[in-house]
């Protein structure tokens, strides 16, 4: 038996492990380098206790998406976004009938109702939509880079690039991207665009849901300014808000920031307890650790090549059948 060859196999195993360990080790080193929110970043501060649950934002959102689709020439899509008359959105029975309401492919935002234990006539309402992460997992995950993050914050999807693998939906910690499974030929990933998609009449202006809100629940401004405002509100009204701005640190920060009522925990209001680290920092660090400008793969290639050379038939004379010179 060629002991030397068995040795080689061990080397292979060991170097494979070593390679990956190096990758992971680098990952924890690089992993701390979180993406810092830029100063241009816009944000939305949602003062949850102020919301009256009129659902006009749902109407305005559908209307804006409809207009954007129409402007892009997607007439069929525009038809699917078309909202019912605004009066229909005053129907409060949806809060009882639909459970926890989640976004749908043609309805980017939804309002949910939670009873107020202190004032039963003034329930709380929360708004769900894409939070436009500072360091979005959907963007990092996408195989064809169909997502872009604009300088002022919106995370935008380019349908023409998409091949429909739906990895973005797997990656999103908030379960936001929605898929048009029923579209046979050109299904798209759908989610809130912060009204910054092509053809949207509110592009470059205040997003539709914020503009229509009669209770002025949401403020659209620089994210850094909003954070200051939020913390001041918490300081001034500790009997209204809980001491936590949701979205300040979650998954590395989000453009949408929420001031939540103190009566409930985060999860009781339909929000998720999430780590402050952006998930792409770990996966990208592992990936770049393994690749490191193609150096490890090239080294691996060279190592295997030299082992192939050293162990070629006739290279060692240990009496094993060497075959008939197979080159």
């Amino acid at each position: 038996m060629g002991v030397s060859r068995r040795e080689f196999l061990r080397v292979v195993g060991a170097s494979g492990v070593a390679g990956s360990v190096v990758g992971v080790a680098t990952s924890s080193a690089e992993g701390s380098g979180a993406v810092v929110p830029s100063d241009d970043l816009m944000g939305v501060l949602v003062d949850v206790p102020k919301c009256i649950g009129c659902r006009r934002c749902e109407f305005a959102c559908k209307e804006a998406a409809m207009q954007a689709s129409a402007a892009r020439g997607e007439t069929k899509e525009a038809e699917r976004f078309k909202p019912d008359a605004i009066e229909a959105f005053e129907d409060k029975s949806v809060f009882d009938d639909e459970g926890l309401r989640r976004p749908e492919p043609h309805c980017y935002t939804k309002i949910n109702r939670f009873p107020n234990p202190e004032q039963p006539d003034k329930p709380f309402f929360t708004k769900v939509n894409c939070l436009h992460c500072v360091d979005p997992a959907c963007l990092s995950a996408c195989i064809v880079k169909a997502f872009r993050k604009l300088d002022d914050g919106p995370v935008i999807y380019d349908a023409w690039k998409c091949m429909g693998c739906r990895y973005c939906m797997v990656a999103c910690p908030f379960g936001i991207p929605q898929y048009e499974y029923d579209n046979l030929w050109t299904p798209q990933v759908r989610k809130c665009t912060l009204c910054a998609d092509e053809g949207n009449p509110n592009k470059g202006k205040v997003p539709a849901c914020i503009k229509i809100c009669p209770a002025e629940v949401m403020t659209y401004a620089k994210r850094s300014d909003l954070l200051a405002v939020a913390h001041e509100k918490i300081r001034n009204e500790p009997d209204v808000y809980q001491d936590h701005v949701y979205g300040e640190h979650e998954v590395g920060g989000t453009s949408w920031l929420y001031l939540l009522p103190h009566q409930y925990s985060i999860e009781e209001l339909g929000f998720l307890e999430l780590d402050s680290k952006a998930p792409p920092r770990l996966t990208e660090a592992i990936q770049h650790g393994v690749f490191m400008k193609f150096f490890p793969p090239a080294a691996w290639f060279a190592l295997l090549g030299s082992m192939m050379w050293v162990s070629r038939p006739g290279a060692d004379q240990d009496g094993e059948p060497t075959g008939e010179g197979h080159h």
Partner: peptide, 19 residues
Amino acid sequence: GRPYNIWHPIILWHGNSVL
């Protein structure tokens, strides 16, 4: 969802994506 775009990764490189 769009199988006719399966070749897109060959031209639309995204080095940060594990996929």
